[in-house]
């Protein structure tokens, strides 16, 4: 196995090193911001207004740009990394004609394919997990009073979903490279297909989140989905149009009866929601890898 690890890295070192440096830089940046925000002691200003808190707010404001940049770029970069290191696993072998050597020697092509996928995928998972956890640490430093395990704010751009998304990109890249047998077309196809699949996971996750919404107005870690009105008389939740059918909004009693609330997913469901979404991504990645293994087993090595 050590030989396989050494030779796999030797063959794929440029992609792995290149994106590895970028991912480590992102993780380091997020961790550094987390340390910085922690040093500002933001938690003391959650309910306090003072000169000191104004100064803290200004210091925070100076770093908001880099924070948003890291938060916004991390997931796309993780997915790009997945596709870019996944495509050449098979595509470069077929393109250069080198697949003939292992595929005429090994009794099962899957025995050749699987270790390489696990090695490169494993490194990718580790590096993107570093990014995800560093982003978690940065997020926690911004919301110190909300436990990270009960916080769904920005959950899709941090934590375990970062490696999960990267691995979908990786698996789709491997499949595209294996099917097309060419690196550049594989990259285009991998990026397009993984983009479509990940957009689909957003949609699926969003739909599932909508199925069990509750009043989360007082929950700082909640995922707020809809603004609604709570009827104190009947206890029902409804939209503005429905409330207007019951009482004229201009009526002074309207605001006594109807309270504006947020419906969403409570922060306490964070572990469940993240686990569910990671499982969906994991299933997609596994399906793509199984399909890639079938392609490798059946196709010509050129």
């Amino acid at each position: 196995m050590r030989t396989t690890i050494r030779l796999t890295f030797k063959q794929h070192r440029f992609g792995v090193l290149g994106f590895g440096i970028i991912l480590v830089a992102i993780a380091a940046g997020a961790a550094a911001l987390g340390v910085y925000f922690n040093s500002l002691d933001i938690g003391t200003c959650a309910t306090e207004v003072s000169e000191a808190c104004n100064a803290i707010a200004q210091q925070m404001g100076a770093m908001v740009g880099p924070m948003y940049l890291l938060r916004g770029a991390s997931v796309p970069i993780a997915i790009l990394a997945g596709v870019f290191v996944g495509v050449p696993i098979v595509a470069s072998e077929i393109e250069r004609g080198t697949a003939i050597l292992p595929w005429t020697v090994v009794r099962s092509r899957v025995r050749w394919f699987l270790p390489r996928v696990l090695i490169v995928g494993g490194v990718l998972a580790f590096l993107t997990a570093l990014v995800g956890l560093s982003l978690d640490a940065m997020h926690q430093s911004l919301y110190p009073l909300v436990p990270i395990t009960a916080d769904l704010n920005w959950y899709e751009a941090r934590g375990w979903l970062v490696p999960a998304r990267a691995l979908v990109g990786f698996a789709v890249g491997v499949l595209a490279g294996a099917a097309l047998g060419r690196s550049l077309p594989g990259l285009f196809a991998g990026l397009v297909i993984s983009g479509v699949m990940l957009a689909g996971t957003f949609a699926v996750g969003g739909t599932l989140n909508q199925t069990h919404v509750v009043d989360v107005s007082g929950d700082p870690g909640a995922l707020r989905l809809t603004l609604a009105l709570h009827d104190h008389t009947t206890g029902a939740y409804m939209g503005y149009e429905e409330a207007e059918q019951i009482m004229w909004p201009g009526d002074p009693a309207f605001t006594e009866r109807f309270e504006e609330v947020y419906l969403g997913v409570p922060g306490s469901s964070s572990v469940l929601v993240v686990t569910r979404d990671v499982a969906i991504h994991g299933a997609l990645a596994l399906m793509a890898l199984v399909a890639a293994a079938v392609v490798v087993d059946r196709r010509r090595p050129y």
Partner: peptide, 11 residues
């Protein structure tokens, strides 16, 4: 030598 190692690891 790497090629010898590669084939040796597969066969």
């Amino acid at each position: 030598a790497d090629h010898l190692d590669l084939v040796g690891s597969l066969l």
